[in-house]
């Protein structure tokens, strides 16, 4: 039960999230993968705070902020996606390439 186990779990979750971001076609599913990544990071923070920071528990406070900001970010991202859907009738990111140079 050392810090190492928690960090391994965090690493695995994070890499799953990376895979999701890179390999999914639907924009909303990418957001799901981003949520995974954020949670992985929070686990890491909280575990580090629990094992290494007995006085201040800075990691937990950081995790709190992460949760708050993740929620905000989801709202905004979904607003953009809905707008995109309104005009292109699709959230397939393979079709959205107006910036192609």
């Amino acid at each position: 039960m050392s810090l190492f186990y928690f960090q391994i779990i965090s690493a695995a979750l994070f890499s799953l999230g990376v895979y999701g971001v890179l390999a999914r076609r639907n924009a909303v599913l990418i957001l799901l993968a981003i949520e995974l990544m954020l949670n992985a990071v929070s686990i890491n923070f909280v575990a580090a705070a629990a094992f290494l920071d007995p006085q201040n528990f800075m990691g937990q406070v950081a995790a709190l902020f992460v949760i708050a900001l993740a929620a905000a970010e989801i709202g905004l991202a979904l607003a953009i996606i809905l707008r995109l859907h309104r005009y292109r009738s699709s959230v397939n990111i393979e079709e959205i390439n107006l910036l192609k140079g």
């Binding site: 050392s2 960090q7 690493a11 990376v18 895979y19 094992f51």
Partner: peptide
Amino acid sequence: AICVSLLIFAAISFATYTNEQASATDRVSA
């Protein structure tokens, strides 16, 4: 994406493995 994510996992675990502090075993209540 599969390759890259595996690489990321390897990198992070390697980083934590070589870190001495990662073997701490006491956890404290908050």
